[in-house]
Design a protein around this nucleic acid. Structure first.
Lengths: 337, 337
DNA sequence: CTTGGCACTCAGGAGCAATGAGTGCCAGCG
DNA sequence: CGCTGGCACTCATTGCTCCTGAGTGCCAAG
């Protein structure tokens, strides 16, 4: 029902509108793109596109603007992801490989992505539940206090202080530590609770209270971190575009962890880049923004997501390219550390 | 040179302008505050205040607006810090005491302060250099890899991975760990480098390379964290006030760690609340904002600063009260953990 | 199906007058 | 000497009209 030329017209409208931020008219289209037809013909096509809901006019005597549905078609069928230049790839690589810490990796990633796309970047910390135990450590830090350190295979380190009932001997701690590590080594974090259910029974009667305390703190840590940590950067880039709606709503939404979580959405079906456009977004405050997101992880294992938020009027091919590239490099960096 | 009534007029102007955000005229002043004089008299006083640079008119036929100098006088001599209500104090206390982690304490603090003042809150992490070593831990995580964990008396935990030359026996690690802890226990972090200078000489010849690796990573950690970590929240509150200048500049400034650091400024002379108004700020992008900041710490020990950033037109007494209260409670929480 | 021509629509800007809040100044009063 | 009421003056803001021009829809001809 939409022949090739109409699609070409839609593509041209999207591209022009994205670059100029002004409604695009039939004459301008005929001039700037060589579609080989006259403005009048383009007007006819535009009338059809409008009738089908792909474009709209802000007011009667203005040019056309893509609707969310129009962007959707553009993203799905009219554009291809634009790979980054070699220079950009190299910059990403060197910038990210300078990180020395999981916090630092995530921090650099989010700043990098924000700068690369000139939009708001959002990065989720590697999921705890999807990673596995590399090491557990128990350290006495004071009389009646232990520090529990949990290190995952993704380099994430969680620590918690445990108040123990009474003092605990070095020996007991050593025993408990060994026990924990043999029980848990390499285990997925989701399987930890089951594996530890009978922990108190495995130690001597004297150490049972301590074991119970350690166990409860450990489980608590896993539960509390189930709600994943997530960060964003580049809010200043929002101020550059002037939003039809209030910029405030967007900022409010960004500061809500929960909203951010929903924003990135479920991990995609395939490993490709996911795009959510305007009203497709779950949050009301973000109805005029689009989100481009992707999974990242090491090897086959998906750890978390990252993405970019910007006005629906965004350069999708480039943004998708940047998101995909950064996701890949983060995976590599995490695998190498 | 400024008699009491003129000061009262200035105070009234500041208060009215802060609450209405509109230039205030002589008639409105006479109506809303009972100064006991007529508008004409107030006009004379206002002329003097303007001549001295405390107030200004946006245009000839408009009311007056306080200048930075006017706010300064107001803060220094015409207002007192407004204590929080009991309910607010209780809310702060319960909210902060729910934290289980240094990250969590800081995160909660910054969100709390932002909400309390309806402005942008900025919180600096407790200084590493001013705290002392509570415990050092060395953990083998893989062949040829150790994890170094450094715990400070403020609950801050730093961890770094060390690539060791060759494999290291459990025994050597134990020895090294014991050595580190005896050398460093309770030591201020600033003194660590000196205390460890001769570390390699204290271990057996076989362990020297390992000791050297550990040492270099440890020193590196201290140096890298000398540049303190700092976070902010409540950017959405900026959108509510409409800035004369571009909001973008402010957002850009906020995302620069370095600017944020300078923003809070040096630790104050006394333990009171510091106010920096408009052009008193070091950063160009923040010439129309004010910063209210205070030190926080445990006991006599100042650990870091926190504060609030908002338009120069802000409710200083309340903001100062909130900042002071939160700074105190954070200190208490940190002391108790 | 495409195209040039043509009448029509309407947002945005320019020009202009009226409004009114607020000022500065001055003469009179206590 | 300081306060007050009166008064002329300034000027941002608002509302109004008019005009312009980009852009459209429709139609008849190629």
């Amino acid at each position: 029902m939409l022949d090739d030329r109409k699609l070409a017209v839609l593509r041209a409208i999207v591209e022009d509108f994205v670059s100029t931020n002004e409604p695009v008219g039939s004459k301008a289209l005929a001039d700037r793109h060589n579609l080989g037809v006259s403005p009048a013909t383009i007007r006819n096509d535009m009338a059809v596109l409008e009738e089908q809901g792909y474009i709209a006019q802000p007011h009667t005597s203005a040019g056309r603007v893509p609707t969310d549905k129009g962007y959707r078609l553009f993203v799905d069928r009219l554009s291809t992801i634009k790979p980054l230049s070699v220079a950009e790839r190299r910059a990403i690589e060197t910038f990210l490989s300078g990180a020395y810490d999981l916090d630092d990796v995530v921090g650099r990633t989010v700043r990098l992505l924000a700068q690369l796309t000139r939009q708001v970047a959002v990065v989720q910390y590697p999921s705890l539940t999807r990673s596995s135990v590399r090491h557990v450590e128990l350290v006495p830090v004071a009389e009646g206090r232990l520090l529990l350190v949990l290190i995952t295979n993704t380099g994430r380190v969680e620590q918690r202080v445990i108040d123990t009932p009474g003092t605990v001997s070095e020996e007991s701690i050593g025993h408990l530590r060994a026990l924990l590590n043999t029980c848990l080594d390499g285990l997925g974090l989701g399987d930890v609770p089951a594996a530890l259910a009978d922990l108190p029974e495995k130690v001597g009667a004297d150490d049972r209270p301590v074991a119970a305390a350690v166990l409860s703190v450990l489980l608590e840590t896993l539960v509390e971190n189930h709600e994943e940590k997530i960060v964003f950067a580049g809010a200043a880039n929002l101020a550059a575009v002037d939003f039809s709606q209030s910029l405030r709503e967007v900022l409010v939404a960004l500061e809500e962890q929960v909203v951010l979580m929903r924003l990135l959405g479920e991990t995609g079906d395939s490993s490709t880049v996911t795009v959510r456009i305007g009203t497709e977004n779950p949050d009301l405050g973000l109805r005029s923004t689009s989100v481009v997101a992707a999974d990242y992880g090491v090897g086959d294992l998906t750890l978390a997501r990252l993405g970019v938020l910007g006005p629906t009027r965004m350069d999708y091919p480039s943004t998708m390219g940047a998101v995909r590239a950064v996701a890949r490099y983060v995976g590599q960096i995490l695998a190498g550390s």
